Simulated scan of single mutants.
Amino acid sequence: MQIEIDALERNGTWKARVEVRGDTQVAGIDYDETFAPIAKLVSVRTFLAITVIEGWEIHQLDENNAFLHGDLREEVYMRLQPNFSSSHPNKFLQVPRQEHLDVVYCVLRYLNGSPGQGILFRSDSSLQLYAFCDADWAACPKTLRSLTVYYVQLGTSHISWKTKKQPTVARSSAEAEYRAMAMTTCSSVGQHV
């Protein structure tokens, strides 16, 4: 990742995920039909877990970055992805306090003292999918929205986890738990949550 960032700074360019298929598209017919393969990390972790369990060989090809060099002389039709520039800034970024900085330092000290820590994919694991979730009802004191926490594992390999505020206020702890289960189920079957 650092190599890519250095290359971006060196070239004075920043990548945008743009889908262009000028080689096969016809004007006015199929400019909206694009395909850009993007792998989600949960897909990569699932693939690695299955590969280890099944004893398959893995070959890796590293491509640091790809840039379009040169000037375009042709007319190119491009469309940015709708959620390209959306991000979820830290909720305390606007008014940070010392306690927030202390937490950041604590996390950085942990990461600095734990190099090489990662996810273990065991070869003697099963292909059984397990999902665990919990909800903290009305966890946010300002909005009273509940907090969903879940993680999914394939055998003994952790492949997905998330903590997220629920989109609406739950009327009871049971409703918050049901919403947490729904979010966990959607993530387990590969639906966007």
Results as ranks from 00 to 15, higher is better:
S43N: 06
I58F: 00
T34R: 14
E19P: 05
F121R: 00
A27F: 12
L72E: 12
R73K: 13
A39C: 15
K40E: 06
Q94N: 07
V18A: 07
T24A: 12
Q60M: 14
P37H: 11
V18E: 03
R21E: 11
A49G: 03
I38P: 05
L61K: 12
S114T: 12
P37Y: 06
L108I: 09
L108F: 10
F121Y: 13
F67L: 14
S114E: 03
F35L: 13
L111W: 12
E9F: 07
E75Y: 02
I38C: 03
H69I: 13
V26N: 09
F35R: 06
A16H: 05
N112L: 14
L111G: 06
E19W: 05
Y105A: 00
E54A: 04
V20N: 06
V18L: 13
E57V: 02
Q117A: 00
P89Q: 13
I53V: 13
E99G: 06
Y31N: 15
A39Q: 15
P96T: 11
E33C: 05
H88K: 08
P89R: 08
N64L: 09
L41E: 15
R21K: 04
V104G: 10
E57W: 01
R21A: 08
D102Y: 00
R109S: 01
Q98S: 08
G116W: 01
F92Q: 09
V20T: 06
Q60P: 01
R109L: 00
C106P: 02
R21S: 06
F67S: 12
E57M: 02
N112M: 10
L8V: 00
T34S: 02
I29K: 15
I50L: 10
P89L: 14
K40A: 02
F92V: 09
L48K: 01
R45V: 04
V42Q: 09
I53F: 06
S86V: 01
R79F: 05
K40Q: 05
L68H: 14
Y31A: 14
I53K: 03
